[in-house]
Amino acid sequence: MISYIIRRLGYMLITLVFVTIVGFFIIELPPGSYLEFHIQSLRQQGGDVTPDQIQALERRYGLGDPVHIRFYKWISGFPRGDFGQSFQHQRPVGELIWSRLGYTLLISVATLIVSWGIAILVGVYSATHRYTIPDYLITVLQFIGLAIPNFLLALVLMIFLQQTFGMRVGVLFSREFRDAPFSIAKMIDLLSNIWVPIVILGVAGTAWTSRVMRANLLDVLNMQYVQTARAKGIHERKVIWKHAVRNALHPLVMTLGMALPGIISGEVVVSTVLNLPTSGPLFFQALIQQDMYLAGTFLVFFAVALLVGNLLADIMLAGLDPRIQYR
């Protein structure tokens, strides 16, 4: 198992190299560069830009070099923690993204945990109460949850909370805590704000996961070994939770690795709507303005999240099911 994990980490590194190459060239693909975007906005402001100035800017940003040289320069900084400069913000990419990535990760992982927790409970309930009124009700809610796009949900919830409770949506901390040092009160304040994006991000996932859980459990409940457990005289609740649910979780955990990138890309949209200080809005801006090192670095980190998520899912699967062995 240990040697398997080490080997997987090696593969992850190779995958990452390819991700950086592909990511870099995709960002490079659209015509123009940040420089043209910059010159255009200078011209719009009424100033004229002379060829001399353009050359000076090109040199400053290192845009004169051929693509592969620029790629090499960018990627060779990675081991030192240097991810290049953001054109737009005039600061190193590393400085800009850490806290934002941290919040993104926090929101994403919290969403995953909350939505799975609820989804498993709901899925088990509706599978064991199939074709009853509560099950039909849950089914309706599930389809609504799946059908509402999360940006719309974000807008509706934002307006609702603001008008009804006077809550300020779109912040992670209240004003008095924003720059305060870490404390319990600050954590509580964070929790009182962060549930909004978690709810918005989690609705579709919860609906989907609970639907899958219901179907899986219904399959498993038809298995012979569930009948065996009942025939032993075990309490029905224990039959469900010990003998059936553990087998029904199997396909869910397999999708865990895919769930994380889904939530992160959902977070881009939701955080842009709510204007949260997470990586979403910054990444979006960087893509529009062709701030390529910033955008590229985000891509790399999202890829890392995907790879780590997959590895964790595989390890969990092995823990869940003794038939799975990694060599």
């Binding site: 298995m223 012979q224 070994y225 009948q227 065996t228 457990a229 025939a231 032993k232 005289g233 075990i234 003998h243 553990r246 087998n247 869940l320 099911d321 003794p322 038939r323």
Partner: peptide, 18 residues
Amino acid sequence: GNEIAMIFQEPMTSLNPV
């Protein structure tokens, strides 16, 4: 399971795999 026990026809599927 105590006074009346039962064994099923499919030994492949009647034991819990996990």
